[in-house]
């Protein structure tokens, strides 16, 4: 616990525990298989203030996706707790929705049906309100013309836009993004950076964004947490005090990204990231 206190004090001055939207406290996780006992996360602690975008970067296999699953409530930690708005996270819930890297849209529903899936699970909404919200979020991601399209007819970028609309529609407090653009080409990704920044500027969601792309993290994050692997720990934290919207071609942004990449190389013992 003293470790965590020192870490918080040193790196996140503007983020006090009292106003944290998300508070991850000394979370540890092991994966036991017949061959090995992998220590995936070791006493990971992090706080995310309301309306902040925190990017988690690190080499493959450092446990960043596991950390996100634990925040989502999809995986239970072996030790430690996660608090969302002061409430301990005991399981998945629609106040913390996830955009996954893998295609997670339901192929038996069309685009509109996919966005409606989460809305149908909001008992406080009426039917016409659900439809209005679904239309709204699909036009927000620029896919209002594709409402009736089947999932397999969409490009990779469009699929992730629908996944984003689906995650935003039930109005979650926290948006968790697990390398959502990892499988997309560079041009599509850059478009999506603009969209995410625009949507974030309007909605001010609290976002945890997992990626292994330094420029992506620097473009989107208010803060970048650098993880090291085996076992996964948070090695360093960087504040990115750049104004928004940001472009990944901005020289200052590139300098920040290079600093994070250098630090990552340090934690990996001379290896090259990506």
């Amino acid at each position: 616990m003293t470790n965590r206190a020192a870490f918080v004090g040193a790196t996140t001055q503007h983020c006090s525990l009292a106003t944290s939207k998300l508070d991850v406290q000394s979370v540890s996780k092991w994966f036991r298989t017949s061959r090995a006992n992998v220590h995936a996360l070791a006493e990971v602690s992090m706080q995310v203030a309301a309306g902040q975008i925190v990017c988690v970067v690190g080499p493959s296999g450092c446990g960043k996706s596991t950390l996100l699953d634990i925040i989502a409530g999809l995986t239970q930690p072996d030790a430690g707790q996660v608090f969302a708005d002061g409430q301990e996270v005991a399981g998945p819930g629609r106040e913390r929705l996830v955009v996954f890297q893998e295609p997670s849209l339901f192929p038996w529903l069309n685009v509109f049906g996919n966005v409606m899936f989460g809305l149908r699970l909001c008992p406080e909404l009426r039917g016409d309100e659900r439809r209005d919200i679904a239309h709204h979020y699909l036009s927000l991601v620029g896919l209002e013309k594709f409402e009736k399209a089947h999932v397999h007819e969409l490009s990779g970028g469009m699929k992730q836009r629908v996944a984003l609309a689906r995650a935003l529609a039930p109005d979650p407090q926290v948006l968790l993004m697990d390398e959502p653009f990892g499988a997309l080409d560079a041009m599509t990704r850059e478009h999506l950076y603009d969209d995410v920044q625009k949507i974030w500027a309007d909605s001010r969601k609290t976002v945890v964004f997992v990626t292994h792309n330094m420029r992506e993290a620097t473009c989107l994050g208010d803060r970048i947490l650098l993880m090291s692997s085996a076992p996964g720990t948070i090695a360093r934290s960087f504040d990115i005090p750049l104004s928004r919207p940001r472009s990944i071609y901005n020289a200052e942004l590139v300098a920040h990204a290079a600093a994070v990449a250098d630090a990552l190389r340090g934690t990996m013992g001379g290896g090259v990231p990506e």
Binding site: G93, R94, L97, S104, G118, C122
Partner: peptide
């Protein structure tokens, strides 16, 4: 991933079986 995504959106037990696992 289908069950995972559905669970985050609040789908549980019978709803999960009927609306996700069965069509999947």
């Amino acid at each position: 991933i289908y069950a995972k995504a559905a669970r985050t959106m609040g789908s549980r037990r019978l709803h999960l079986w009927m609306m996700v696992m069965l069509p999947a």
